[in-house]
């Protein structure tokens, strides 16, 4: 019985199960490294409270996030193209974004509200470290050199942001792997960061099948 087909190779059910296992290990380990770097950077104990890893199509993924789609979020995107077509998105709700600015800049929250650009810069800096930690962990696990873009940052409706990521030519109309981690401050459970990874599935399967 065949479940998945790629251009070059047809994967059996057992190969697919093996792929799932390898994929789960790959993303879970990489998330763990990213959270360690986040904790160091923020000097707070951050914990992964939820990990979701699965295979889907972009439009289905976005439609599943209905409750959050209409809200404005700070987002930072890193693109990985050299070996895998992968997109790393760090997402913070508005209040958390402002809080992040104060943490990174050592300011008291009562001082003043940061303007949008200041928060956007802060989340870009955060993703530069956390997102690239994730990329490094990915590269180490795969034993491959992976190049990543500089972060592109925005503050916008979450649905519009995710839609634009899914409509990148590397993901359009393809099966994608989505891995998502919700990360929470142990001392302040209201402070949440979301790390979303969207990766083109076929290439990832090829890479993992050789490991």
């Amino acid at each position: 019985m065949l479940e998945l087909e790629t251009t070059h190779h047809v994967y059996s059910v057992s190969e697919c199960a093996e792929f799932e296992n390898k994929m789960n290990r790959l993303f879970t380990n990489s998330f763990q490294r990213a959270v360690e770097s986040l904790s160091q950077l923020l000097t707070r104990e951050m914990l992964i409270t939820k990990i979701r890893i699965g295979r889907t199509q972009g439009d289905l993924y976005i439609n599943q996030l209905e409750g959050l789609i209409e809200e404005n979020h700070f987002s930072s995107l890193i693109k990985v193209h050299s070996y895998l077509d992968t997109f790393i998105l760090l997402i913070l709700p508005k209040e958390e974004g402002e809080q992040l600015y104060h943490i990174l800049n050592g300011r008291n929250q009562a001082d003043r509200f940061p303007d949008q650009d200041e928060v956007i810069d802060s989340i870009g800096e955060l993703n530069n470290i956390v997102g690239l930690t994730f990329v490094n962990a990915l590269a180490n696990t795969l034993g491959k050199a992976i190049n990543a873009s500089v972060p592109e940052n925005t503050f916008d409706l979450l649905g519009a942001v995710l839609e634009s990521v899914v409509l990148q030519k590397e993901l359009i109309n393809r099966d994608i792997v989505r891995a998502e981690a919700e990360i929470t401050d142990v001392q302040d459970p209201d402070f949440n960061v979301r790390l979303v990874i969207l990766s083109e599935q076929t290439r990832l399967m090829e890479v993992l099948s050789h490991r």
Partner: peptide, 9 residues
Amino acid sequence: LLKSVKKPG
């Protein structure tokens, strides 16, 4: 949203 979008560099 009326906003400015920044890209590093």
